[in-house]
Computed example of a mutant assay.
Amino acid sequence: MLDRRARALLARPVDAITRAVDRPGITPDGLTLAGLGLGLASALAAGLQLWALALVLWLVSRVVDGVDGALARRRRADGRLSSESQAGGFLDITADFVVYGATVVGVAVGATAGFGAPWWPFLLVLLVYYVNGTAFLAFSSIAERTGRRIDDGRSLSFLGGLAEGTETIIVHALWLILPFWAWQIALVWVVVVGISATQRMVAGYRALR
């Protein structure tokens, strides 16, 4: 829901960071892997109840994740990167899924150990993530094959929904800021992501009919 506004709002700072890191030896895939490493480190820190460290690592990992695609587009525009290769897009979405899932597990471990939080709300989050991810990845694959691709500059065809990347970043940050309320936040998030998954399933089915 907020992704388009967030991209417009952050376009200038992301472009400035992209120009700063556009140096020999720094590649989009390298940034993706760096974001993956930082995200996994954030999940580990959450599991160890190092909440402030986990928050910093989480936010930095998401900044790096935003810059990798911008750097790839910049280099494609001036011919320094093949416009045919989609390997970077594949690596990026895979890393995102790994980081999102790991963060849920890390927060669940830390909140359970530190505040006696129940496990099941976090298991429900993973379930709705699975359903939501299945819906938009299946749509993207079929839309590409049938010539109905949604081109917004990203590697995949993203169907909009109530819960998008921006909301995910915010909610995961809230878990790390308010870990003593993590399971309650998780329950609300399950409802939001569940609605988003339903929206994507309906919209995707209608678009592909």
Rank of each mutant, 00 (worst) to 15 (best):
G106T: 08
A77P: 14
A113E: 12
L156D: 07
G165C: 05
F90L: 11
F90G: 10
A8K: 12
G165M: 08
A54V: 04
A102H: 02
R23A: 02
G35K: 03
R80H: 09
G25W: 01
A20N: 04
T94H: 09
G79N: 08
A70H: 06
G101Q: 01
L55D: 07
P24R: 14
V107G: 07
L31G: 15
L9N: 12
A87S: 15
F139G: 02
S42G: 08
P13H: 09
V190G: 11
A6D: 15
S83F: 09
A207M: 11
L40P: 11
T146F: 02
G106L: 04
V128W: 12
V56S: 14
W183D: 07
T168W: 11
V171E: 03
G79H: 07
G161T: 00
L10I: 13
L9M: 12
D15C: 03
W183Y: 10
S155F: 06
P28R: 15
V105Y: 03
D96W: 08
A54S: 10
R23N: 01
G153T: 02
A138R: 03
A117I: 02
Y130N: 10
A45Q: 11
I195V: 15
S196Q: 08
L10K: 15
Y100E: 07
R75V: 03
V107A: 10
Q199A: 09
D3Q: 13
M1V: 07
G101A: 04
Y129A: 13
R73Q: 13
A6S: 15
R80P: 08
S83I: 13
G35L: 03
R200E: 05
I17S: 04
V131L: 01
T103H: 09
L59W: 01
L91H: 06
V105N: 04
I169R: 04
R148K: 05
L38Y: 04
A8R: 14
A143S: 02
G194N: 06
G39P: 07
M201R: 06
Q199S: 10
D92Y: 01
R62P: 15
W175T: 08
V21Y: 12
L59R: 07
D78S: 05
I170L: 01
P179D: 11
